[in-house]
């Protein structure tokens, strides 16, 4: 069974995109506020500023890709728990490998190879992705139940919350 959403119509798309985007933009200003509060920690931890936006983007993209697949499966009328678990696990494994390697490079370039940055990246990534993937699943299911196209909701919600969680965790884990 396909989902009953009209995927056309500029005004319909704008209505759902604008409400979500404005809400998320205001919420993300609080992430900026938290970041500004700990600006000194960010400034005094070599490599953290280089690591943070990459972690935020990668974790958000991985969870969103998983959510997007889940949404497409529902649109095509072929939802599967096994497929969802495989997708979520594949994204997590890829995330750990890629971000671990990136943190190692950043550590060598900006932090004289100290292992702290890699440990920080792996801890932050594991915790933040667990939250993001759970939220992606809940938001797809919740959007369908609420009669909203999950394509319009999942990405914004997941990336905004992921950004906030990643900023908070990385600053908490930072020495």
């Amino acid at each position: 069974m396909r989902l009953p959403f009209d995927t056309r119509n500029v005004l319909r798309i704008l209505r759902s995109v604008l409400v979500v985007s404005i809400l998320m933009a205001v919420l993300s200003s609080y992430s900026g506020s938290y970041l500004a509060t700990y600006e000194k920690k960010l400034e005094n931890t070599p490599g953290l500023a280089a690591l943070l936006p990459v972690m935020m983007a990668a974790i958000g993209a991985a969870a969103s890709a998983y959510g997007s697949r889940l949404s497409t499966d529902l649109h095509l009328g072929r939802p599967s728990v096994i497929r969802a678990l495989k997708d979520a696990s594949a994204q997590f494994l890829a995330l750990i490998i890629v971000l671990g390697a990136y943190a190692e490079v950043i550590s060598l370039v900006f932090a004289s190879g100290k292992p702290g940055l890699v440990v920080l990246a792996l801890k932050t990534t594991s915790c933040a992705y667990a939250v993001a993937a759970g939220l992606a699943t809940a938001s797809v299911v919740g959007a369908v139940k609420a009669g909203v196209n999950p394509d319009d909701v999942v990405g914004p919600l997941v990336t905004t919350v992921t950004d906030a969680v990643t900023i908070i965790l990385s600053l908490l884990f930072a020495p």
Partner: peptide
């Protein structure tokens, strides 16, 4: 600028993701 950057990046990323997903 530090304050506005996460919000701009978040919004632009959100819009890009929603567009990409659609």
């Amino acid at each position: 600028l530090l304050a506005i950057l996460p919000a701009l990046m978040d919004f632009r990323g959100n819009v890009a993701l929603a567009h990409s997903s659609r």
